[in-house]
Structures are given as structure tokens and as C-alpha cells.
Design a protein around this nucleic acid. Structure first.
Lengths: 117, 117
DNA sequence: CGGCATCCGATGCGATACTG
DNA sequence: CAGTATCGCATCGGATGCCG
């Protein structure tokens, strides 16, 4: 398939997954199902609550994830991938596969450079 | 295929294609073949020469594109996708397809909202 | 033609502290 | 527990001007 630049919507996808922690969030939700805010924070250790909230809100606004509030005490909020969000999987899989190849590529390339190429 | 978070390399791909104009550059090179610096600048009108150079250099360092200098006068420099860079096509295609779907999705969603949902 | 040097502003992200 | 409020900074990209 050839991408026609004039009607190219690649950046539509970029805009949605751009954000330092969005991929990590999506991958966690895809792998583990519904996850609470605190659990997400533990799953992505370096993220602060403020930024985690930001990224979640942005994903929610694009209908990629769902936010479910359980009116309990203590409060409980779960996030999970929406049906629509699951349509991102082909992109993630393609990126993942390429990432694996890229690791291997860098390996061999750097080895060559060590030998003076 | 299920992505195993522990050995997930999705961000490897992200790191390579992140950059405001990199996708536009790659798509242009894929569609039009070898392209000169000036032509790229005309193809991506909003980019300034400084930033265009930056993005090209970063893509070049990852071996995604080739930079060919022709020692003529006036100077001529052509950029083109490397063989390795072509391996990104599955990602771009997946993103493009999703982008098209996303446009349609937003259409119907916004129409619903207009009707008071 | 194909850049590079310099300056500058916006935005994204982080640190810390506090709250219903 | 699941956030919000404030502050601050670094990074990225844009504007402008100059050069081989």
C-alpha cells in the first residue's frame, strides 16, 4: 500500500500517542486489563501523579481509554483500554517488532564500528 | 501477538520517529525518492532550514536516511530513504490506516455530540 | 544551494506540597 | 486513594542573519 501524501493522516496517530508515558500506559493496560491509578503509578515508576493524570486525561479525551469511578471509600478509579483504543494495537505491534529489530541492528552496527569501520 | 512489557521495545521506534517533521520527511522520501534539501523545504513549507537540517541529521544518525553530497557548483545534496529506513514502512502504514479511521471516528462522534449526546 | 550561529519563546515534564 | 496546585526548568522548535 502506498501512502498518498495529500491525504496522509499519519500525524493523526502520532498526535494521539505522543506523550512521554502514553505508550507505557497503553501497553500496561493492554497486558494487564483494568488498572487503578495507584497501580499504574507503580507500573510506571518514574511518572508523577500530576503528569500521569495529564496523560490519562488526554487519552480519555480521544476515547482511547475509559475512566471508571467507583463511589466507594476509599475512592477507587480504574482505567482500561476502550474498544476503540484496541484499534491502536497494530501500530504498537509494528513499533514493537521494529524496536526488536532495531536493537539487533544497533548491536551489529556498533560491533562493526568497534572493528574500525 | 502479545507484547511482553519486560522486553518491550516500542519506545525504540518512538525515539527514532519523534520530531515535528520527521514523519513528513520520511513520507516524502518514500513517495518521491531522492530529494534535494531545497525541495524538501518546499515540500514541508513550515519548516525552517535549521530545524530541517536537525531532523535530517538525526534520521541520518539512525541510518534511516542517506545523505549524498555531489561536489558540484552550485552545491547539491540529496537525501533518500536507506534500505534500513524502509523497514519503517509497516509502522507508517499502520499509523496512516489508523489516522484515516480516526478521522472518520471523530466525524461520527462529533455529529453525535451536536445532537446532544 | 545548503547549510551554521545565535537568540528566544512555548510547551512538556518534574518536584514538592496539599486535599476531598 | 486519587488526585490538584504551584513553581520551575530543560528541551524543542522558530526567527533572523550570515557563510562557503
Amino acid at each position: 500500500m502506498k501512502i498518498v501524501p495529500d491525504q496522509c493522516q499519519v500525524s493523526q496517530a502520532m498526535d494521539v500517542i505522543i506523550g512521554k508515558w502514553k505508550l507505557a500506559i497503553l501497553l500496561h493496560l493492554l497486558a494487564h486489563g483494568p488498572t487503578r491509578f495507584g497501580a499504574l503509578q507503580r507500573a510506571v515508576p518514574a511518572v508523577t501523579p500530576k503528569v500521569l493524570t495529564q496523560q490519562l486525561r488526554e487519552l480519555e479525551e480521544e476515547d482511547i481509554i475509559n475512566r471508571n469511578v467507583y463511589p466507594e471509600n476509599p475512592p477507587k478509579v480504574e482505567y482500561d483500554i476502550s474498544t476503540y483504543g484496541q484499534s491502536l494495537e497494530p501500530i504498537l505491534n509494528a513499533m514493537h517488532q521494529w524496536g526488536l529489530d532495531h536493537m539487533a541492528y544497533k548491536q551489529t552496527r556498533d560491533k562493526k564500528e568497534d572493528n574500525g569501520v
